[in-house]
Nucleic acid binder design. Structure first.
Lengths: 345, 345
DNA sequence: ATGAAAGCGCTAACAT
DNA sequence: ATGTTAGCGCTTTCAT
């Protein structure tokens, strides 16, 4: 079986305390002792038992990440960034998928598997402001996204309203006047869909353009198929459309496909912008303009905030008040919103 | 602080053993006792300490999953499937990214974070047959993919040669005679690229078509951009091309884009098939024919095999010999290989 | 600079 | 059916 401190100690002819000191890089160890211990560690192939250490010190070096679904590219890229950032700090990541189900989101907050986790980064999709009380947990928790506004925990967000407004203004600046919004959720007044719709409306208003319900495409989920269907629905209404704001890239890909299927030339007749800056946006035909939501920064910020909370708790300091961190976004212009008179890429 | 067995026991007026029995669903507990204990658990908010349990029983209920990168859609979807399957079995998943770096792949096999893991599912991308000895580890290990052929551990694979051959035969059946292969790795004779190239050659040979080096597009990685560049290179050679076998969907997306950029009509002038059945294949224009590699089945099989190895080890049974599990694939025909005379989708 | 020993919370063998 | 108790491997006082 795996070697323990005791095995190493015996082999090196010292006490387990000394081995422990060497393993943990304690300074005051005689050089000769250290060498002997290191040799014994090498020889036995000793690796510390994380469960035992974790039981003893109350931390495991593992953080949880709860998100809707890894098959959604946005979350896959986010998870990759979280894992990379965690690794920088010597921490590993345990992933839970909630499938965007409300019950699963409740469950994940009390999941027994989180017991061996030092804290959680949580990206809710079904929970809303009403559920804010559920976020009062007794472990460090960082939530992502703007579904909940004053959570009793740290919060890393990108400003959806401002970003959606900027995306819509980008279309307006490109000459669009009849801009469809694809991806709205019926009856929702919180969450990304509602916020991005609000940003869209603000941009229209600021430009003196009317808000026209017949230009809004409602969907269930933000999958490609939903984008395609919603786009077809809007076009079927027979209204004029010369621009499309897709509330995420995946919806926009579907909408782009629908436009092309119906013979609309993009960007000549209709311009379209998405949201997320998925890798894929670079490779569609035409390539998709989008909003870069600063995924990397969100991931880095979330990990750092979580780890500092964990450290704060370890050192027994008084808990600082929950903070909200807003990360920057960026409009990325690609072919799908290029003006006819603009130079090619 | 968090409640322990002792707290619950005290409150319920029983011993910790009884509480433990209730928690673990032991049958022989008096109904009234069980009720009292459950009430005490409810009241204290008791949750078992996984580290302690894990230390005691030697298992944590966590498995590791090591893969190149979550940002690659294939691996994101695979990881999602592994997590879902693991959850079915009450197990959680800790993910490590290797970035397809050889050193990182070596490291992951000895990573300290695996210490709290009961076993590992590993999808190597840089390791080769030469590294087979490194897979002799003292914990349950299941490897995925065909980079290594007779590993000293269980192995879940899809038959790349046969699948690539089937994909190429699909193009041939659709009338293609000048079929480019996009995604070869120079000098590689193991790994997916080499295997898929072999399947491609076998199909040509079986159909009596010549193998023409000028139709092979070499790449560094299997990203979209690589597919586009390789396709441009092949076209630049001025050779006739009426079919393209993309060694994965991502390459095929890039190649598709390149073909369209150069004014080739797909599928009328050139047909193209990819490999992986990413969700995205349904939404490109034209939609992409591909090979469904049975990701879900790979994930399920891998988790089940790993868990049964863990169970085998727990029960102290003699270890059965490592097995190879081959999962089935399926050709998915979409628009990109449709014959002119075939009915539309 | 190093050793002895307590105990983190749990499970399981043994006892009743 | 339930209680007692010995560790699992580690970190950490407290000695020396």
């Amino acid at each position: 079986m795996a070697a323990t401190l005791r095995d190493v100690a015996e082999l090196a002819g010292v006490s387990i305390k000394t081995v422990s000191n060497v393993v943990r890089g304690y300074k005051h160890v005689k050089e000769s002792t250290r060498t002997a211990v290191l040799a014994a560690i090498e020889q036995t192939g000793y690796q510390p038992n994380i469960s035992a250490r974790s039981l003893r010190i109350g931390r495991s070096g593992v953080i949880g990440l709860a998100l809707p679904e890894l098959a959604l590219p946005y979350f896959a890229e986010l998870a990759g960034a979280v894992i990379s950032e965690a690794k920088e700090h010597g921490v590993t990541v345990l992933i839970e998928q909630t499938g965007a189900e409300l019950d699963a989101e409740y469950d994940v907050l009390r999941s027994p598997s989180l017991q061996l986790t030092d804290g959680l980064i949580f990206s809710p999709l079904a929970m809303s402001q009403d559920d804010v009380a559920r976020l009062e947990v007794d472990y460090p928790l960082v939530i992502l996204g703007e579904r909940i506004f004053d959570p009793p925990c740290d919060h890393v967000v990108m400003d959806n309203v401002v970003a959606a407004r900027a995306a819509t203004e980008h279309l307006i600046a490109a000459g669009c006047r009849r801009i469809a919004a694809i991806g709205a959720h019926l009856g929702e007044d919180q969450g990304s869909a509602a916020l991005r719709l609000r940003g869209y409306r603000e941009a229209l208003e600021a430009a003196g353009l009317p808000y026209d319900e017949s230009l809004v495409g409602y969907v269930g989920l933000w999958h490609r198929l939903d984008g395609a269907q919603a786009m077809h629905e809007v076009l079927a209404r027979g209204v004029a459309v010369d621009g499309v704001f897709g509330m995420n890239d995946t919806l926009a890909f579907g909408a782009l496909r629908a436009l092309q299927d119906e013979g609309r030339r993009v960007p000549d007749e209709v311009k379209i912008i998405g949201f997320d800056d998925l890798d894929e946006t670079r490779y569609t035909a035409p390539s998709l303009s989008t909003v870069d939501p600063g995924r990397l920064q969100i991931a880095q910020q979330a990990v750092r905030v979580l780890l500092s909370r964990i450290e704060e708790r370890r050192s027994g300091g008084a808990a600082a008040a929950p903070r909200r961190y807003t990360t920057p976004f960026r409009i990325v212009e690609r072919e799908s919103t290029r003006r006819a008179d603009a130079p090619a890429a």
